[in-house]
Amino acid sequence: MDLLFWIFIFFGTFSIMEFMAWFTHKYVMHGFLWHLHKDHHKKDHKGWFERNDLFFIFYAIISMGCFYLWNYDNIWYCLPIALGILAYGLAYFTVHDIFIHQRFKIFRNTNNWYAKGVRRAHKMHHKHIGKEDGECFGMLIVPFKYFKK
């Protein structure tokens, strides 16, 4: 029974992170912390790192805090929460930074309808280089209008 709770909490946390990614992007990154996010829409430097990369630190600290609470205070449900946040972070990095933005030159020739839809939706978001009017959605839940066969 405990294993079922762990699995439920892990997938629940992963799902909540999709909402948190959307919320943070729409109201924080395109809101009061735009000055950190804008170099993601219009690169204004020559380096590989972006100021936008600092956003991962917030959720990484929460995940590390949960690992700490599980390990030192024996709060059992903190482990599946920490793992859910970590798994979402890895999925986000893989889809957004590697697949969509090609920060590492792999997955370039992926030709599946879902992959094309995710890239198309993200491209529409980046069509707007300013703070306003950028369509926002999660990493995995993308409006169907972007999927064409």
Rank of each mutant, 00 (worst) to 15 (best):
N74W: 07
D2E: 15
F32N: 11
H96P: 02
Y114N: 01
L140Q: 05
A91R: 00
G117W: 03
K43F: 04
F107S: 04
H122E: 03
L79C: 12
L69M: 15
P80L: 04
F67N: 07
Y27T: 13
W34P: 09
P143E: 06
Y68M: 10
R51Y: 10
Y77N: 09
I100A: 07
L83S: 10
H128A: 09
I85M: 13
I85E: 00
K42W: 08
K149Q: 03
W48T: 09
N112W: 00
Y88A: 00
M17F: 12
I141P: 02
T94C: 13
Q102A: 10
F99D: 11
G84D: 10
M1Y: 13
A21P: 02
G47R: 14
Y27E: 08
V28S: 02
F137T: 00
N112R: 06
M139S: 01
I100C: 14
G84Q: 05
T24N: 12
G89H: 03
F19A: 06
K127Q: 08
Y114E: 01
F11R: 06
G134L: 04
F104S: 00
H40K: 05
P80I: 07
Y59I: 02
A21Q: 11
M17A: 11
W76C: 04
I16V: 13
L90S: 01
A91P: 01
Y92S: 10
F49V: 12
K149F: 10
L79V: 15
L90Q: 03
Y72D: 14
I9K: 04
F8R: 06
F107V: 08
G138P: 03
G47T: 07
M64E: 10
W70H: 15
F14W: 14
I129H: 07
N71V: 06
H30K: 11
H128R: 05
C78W: 08
A121V: 02
K149V: 03
K116W: 04
G47D: 12
D39G: 05
N74S: 15
K105H: 07
D73A: 15
V118F: 02
K116D: 14
H45E: 10
K123S: 09
H30S: 05
D133V: 03
T24S: 13
I16T: 06
M64L: 15
L4S: 12
C136H: 07
G31P: 06
D2C: 06
I9S: 05
H125V: 02
F49H: 11
L3I: 15
K105P: 05
F55S: 03
K42I: 10
F56P: 00
D53K: 11
P143L: 02
K42S: 14
F99S: 12
F144V: 08
K38Y: 14
F55E: 09
L79G: 08
